[in-house]
Design a binder for these strands. Structure first.
Lengths: 200, 200
DNA sequence: CGGCCACTAGATAGATCGCTCTAGCGGTAG
DNA sequence: CTACCGCTAGAGCGATCTATCTAGTGGCCG
């Protein structure tokens, strides 16, 4: 594909994926109707089942993987741009808070609402969300290992990082405040500092 | 009503509230149909709109407040039963993990799925969830203050505690593992220890 | 007893759900 | 040209959603 591919008009399939991702973030899986998806995507209904013969579930799996990978890269990009790992952690929470405010508390984690909805009702989608979370944990673990921490510590730290982010999103969106993200940011910094101090 | 009312067979309204709470936990707000609620509650459909004239939304508000208060008391009960606050924090995460395993990863937080679903779609329900979270934070803040911490530190710690719990629930239910709750428990213990150390 | 009220009971309306179906368009190959 | 195929286009199906409506029941009070 050419390097300026993103300036060309997007195909129907991509528009459907984008629209679904946006709706999932705000209204979840059950709350997003196929009719509204194709309307938002400016796509005919028939195209949906042409590109996703498996219906809503197949579309859901694709969106979970796509949005999950994208969001993971976004967060890890912030991580890697920082001069040190502690600053990187702090920047992630600050950046998340900024996005939340800018989008009127709509754009948080692209898959957390869906993950909770399907955890006890749809095994296929549950697995997809589990894979995404695991990929994020793995990506973060690599960073913490690079900072000199051993594998189990790095993994535990990575999981706590994700937990603090996801949990804060819930409280922030409910209260329409960034207070929870700020608290999580401080907590994350504290646990990372403690782990680094144990190195010395 | 007699003092032993809770041993008598529950009324229709209570059965509806209980059934709805159970369904909300597993399938969320949108995923729980009124037909299934009355079926699970062994209640006639007409009774639902007699006891909750405001329909699904009024039922939702009541369930959020009721389940929220109940769960807050449950967690704070674990907190208070511990010899010290650090043990109390650890016990909460261990207890949550035990419940999760015992219920096949279904019973986590009674309102988190609903909170995410309604955050951008139903202002009335969003406010109800925000009130519940705030009541939990306030209850935890009282405990941390009692341990000698100042108000802002106690509040930040309380929010982080809730964040770590809620975030871990997402990952645990997605992965069907208690690993995330264990990581959150360690992180919570670390931040509480750090705060207490700053006292001395 | 008759009248009232809280509650039970469920049929049904009207909208929306996910999904299937057929028809048609536009570019390419033979 | 015709034949084909990927894709667009949307009508319409049965099921299910929330909500309303009427009717019936049982206990309490005058």
């Amino acid at each position: 594909m050419p390097p300026d591919a993103q300036t060309e008009p997007k195909g129907t399939k991509d528009r459907i994926l984008d629209a679904t991702a946006a709706l999932f973030m705000r209204y979840g899986y059950t709350g997003s109707g196929l009719k509204q998806i194709v309307a938002d995507a400016n796509a005919p209904f028939g195209s949906l089942y042409h590109h996703f013969p498996g219906g809503k579930q197949e579309l859901g799996v694709d969106v979970i993987h796509r949005s999950g990978a994208l969001y993971g890269e976004l967060v890890m990009g912030v991580f890697d741009a920082a001069p040190d790992i502690l600053t990187g952690v702090r920047d992630c929470f600050e950046g998340a808070a900024a996005v939340l405010v800018a989008t009127d508390y709509a754009d948080a984690c692209p898959i957390e609402t869906v993950a909770l909805e399907v955890a006890s009702s749809n095994e296929t989608l549950r697995l997809a969300t589990a894979e995404v979370f695991e990929s994020w944990i793995a990506a973060a673990t690599v960073r913490f290992r690079a900072a000199g921490l051993d594998e189990p510590t790095a993994r535990t730290l990575s999981i706590s990082f994700v937990n603090l982010l996801e949990g804060a999103f819930i409280l922030c969106r409910a209260a329409r405040t960034t207070e929870a993200l700020e608290a999580s940011g401080k907590a994350a910094a504290t646990v990372v500092e403690a782990a680094l101090r144990n190195l010395a």
